[in-house]
Nucleic acid binder design. Structure first.
Length: 564
RNA sequence: UGGGGCGUCGCCAAGCGGUAAGGCACUGGGUUUUGAUCCCAGCAUUCGUAGGUUCGAAUCCUGCCGCCCCAGCCA
């Protein structure tokens, strides 16, 4: 039924690895790494990278390290270090004893920097930020060499040592590589290797250091130290590859991993940028990193998405160098496919309308059996309670409708799911003319069998008014109103694209009794409505709160024109 | 206008000189006590574009067009 996670389509990176193994490059080893910066929660875009890196390691009998790229203590903290580990584990991957931090290598990094200085390949520069920018040139004009570029090795050594010792203020000096100020590649114009940062407590190294290495310097060395063979990253780092290689070619380190770039994931109607997600959280547009509308793994988990479905999604979208925008439907199909196979069925009424079955005895009630899955008997069944007063959904009744409408109409018949066929005899309204109650009759001969000689319009779900459990349901919709959510009109802001109706809370819902014992993490299908899960943050509440994971496909919604 | 990438169906994506896989979406039809699921069928004479090479090109070459990334002491 489900082909989940069996399929790992090939891609250009796997082809490169295949070739490398044939030619014996890296001794035939495959060793990857997932290198997040702990400055935010992981999102669906990271999932693509995780599945790629850990997946390749698995398939080639290699290894994949988890490494925190923690070179900028200003933006990083321990909460993110922990959440990232939780999320990678939840997604289904493990790094055994290979949890590393770039900060583990601070001493090595320092020593290699000294080596660069000794070889005349790095220098301490006193230019401030603004001056540096001016000296850097532009995209079309070459830059000029820093006046400090010619300092002697001895002076550079001493100044760098004093930078480390804390003799200079933030921004006073940096260590720079001596490469080529005329390079058409901006990254090669004597890039900064180290900067000074006082007064921050690094989550791993505390106050041991007041100089911190830059990404472009740290990453290749960290990869090499760990024996990484293939260093996979996103397209925007393609321009950095010459620098990655330059660093490794100019220090005495044996390994030289191969950086390979792939395009990052763009998902329609959401943003996949840590900066923007951080803003949504910090400015209160959402409840937090785990808001069920967020494309973070924490949010998707709370929303009810399974790890398997996210993995499957990552397989289906593939890995290439072409940037695109993946439709939400792609993700939704993965979720539905998983949930359809595995979620037990239940009944819940979201917009209740009271319905009284007049020919059903006042005090009577009966216990009926209902299967948990229409096709999978191994999933068993549960008991539901039927009585004279029930709730149905308001959308399942219309006073009149054409024959396309397969639900209850005045004078018409409909099947109550897992129960009897009923007929609407009378519509009760209040003074405002609003329908407040339906009076019906039922056919006691229709339990488990169809009536003879007449055709029933359709099937609707229901919950006993006497036995049902009252509670809340949260309906989620796309977070943004436009597919390219980060596109902004002149003078606008991406938050202008936020969908004001991304969350709808329904507080007057009724769930069948079996749902009273629903546990955290259990996904259900509420028949004819969608897939739901108990909100893990509200699990302690007396009345249950369910999140809607995703609706059922609904071909009726497309043809339901007014008067239908 | 410098450099680096990318352009195959509405979306994602195979294809690697021998005559356009697959998935999603969509459209028909069948089954169905979920307008769900499931099943069956349809869905690119054409690969951004114009030339060239070749018996033969989405695949090789050249020009052009379009889109993305780069001027942090962020990653």
């Amino acid at each position: 039924m489900s082909n989940s996670q069996n399929s790992t389509p090939t891609n250009f990176i796997r082809q490169i690895i295949d070739q490398d193994r044939q030619t014996g490059k890296h001794g035939g080893r495959v060793h990857t790494r997932f290198p997040p910066e702990p400055n935010g929660y992981l999102h669906i875009g990271h999932a693509k990278s995780i599945v790629l890196n850990f997946g390749i390691a698995e398939d080639y009998q290699g290894l994949c390290n988890l490494r925190f790229d923690d070179t900028n203590p200003h933006k990083e903290n321990i909460e993110f270090v922990e959440s990232i580990q939780d999320d990678v584990h939840w997604l289904g991957y493990d790094w055994d004893d290979r949890l590393f931090y770039a900060s583990d290598y601070f001493q090595h990094l320092y020593d290699f920097a000294v080596e660069l200085i000794e070889n005349g390949k790095a220098f301490v520069c006193d230019l401030d930020g603004e001056e540096m920018r001016a000296y850097r040139g532009t995209l079309t004009e070459p830059g000029r060499e820093s006046p400090y570029r010619a300092r002697s090795v001895a002076e550079n050594l001493e100044l760098f040592q004093r930078m480390k010792a804390g003799d200079f203020e933030d921004g006073a000096r940096v260590l720079r590589a001596k490469i080529d100020m005329a390079s058409p590649n901006m990254n090669m114009r004597d890039p900064t290797l180290y900067r000074i940062r006082h007064g921050v407590i690094h989550h791993q190294t505390g106050e041991a250091w007041c100089i911190y290495p830059m990404y472009d310097y740290t990453h290749p060395i960290s990869d090499a130290l760990e024996g990484i063979t293939h260093s996979l990253c996103t397209l925007e780092f393609e321009d950095h590859r010459p620098l990655y290689d330059w660093v490794l070619d100019n220090i005495s380190i044996p390994n030289h991993p191969q950086q390979i770039e792939f395009s990052r994931l763009n998902l329609a109607y959401t943003v996949v940028s840590k900066r923007k997600l951080t803003q949504l959280v910090d400015e209160g547009y959402v409840e937090g990193w785990d808001d069920p509308r967020m494309p973070t793994l924490a949010g998707m988990r709370r929303r009810g998405y399974s790890a398997a479905s996210i993995r499957e999604f990552c397989h289906r979208i593939g890995v290439t160098k072409a940037d695109g925008l993946v439709e939400m439907g792609m993700l939704e199909n993965c979720i539905r496919e998983d949930l359809n196979a595995h979620a037990p069925r239940r009944m819940a009424v979201l917009h209740p309308l009271k319905l009284v079955i007049e020919n059903y005895p006042e005090e009577k009630s009966e216990t009926l059996k209902a299967p948990n899955h229409p096709k999978d008997e191994s999933m068993g069944g549960r008991e539901i309670e039927f009585c004279r007063e029930i709730y149905i959904d308001r959308a399942d009744f219309r006073e009149q409708a054409n024959k396309k409408y397969k639900r209850l109409v005045s004078g018409g018949e409909v099947r109550l799911r897992n129960a009897y066929v009923i007929k609407c005899e009378e519509v009760m309204k209040n003074n405002q003319g609003e329908i407040v109650e339906l009076r019906c009759s039922y056919d006691p001969e229709t339990l488990g069998k169809n009536p003879e000689g007449r055709k029933v319009r359709g099937v609707i779900h229901w919950v006993s008014a006497r036995h049902g459990v009252k509670g809340e349901v949260r309906l989620y919709d796309r977070l943004f109103n436009r597919a390219d959510a980060d596109k902004v009109e002149e003078g606008g802001h991406f938050t202008d694209n936020l969908n004001p109706d991304s969350l709808r809370t329904l507080t007057d819902c009724y769930f069948e009794p079996a749902l009273a014992s629903a546990g955290v993490g259990e996904q259900y299908q509420f028949e004819r409505e969608g897939y739901f899960i108990l909100d893990s943050r509200e699990a302690a509440r007396e009345e249950p709160v369910f999140n809607r994971i995703i609706t059922l496909r609904d071909s009726w919604a497309k043809i339901d024109k007014p008067g239908g």
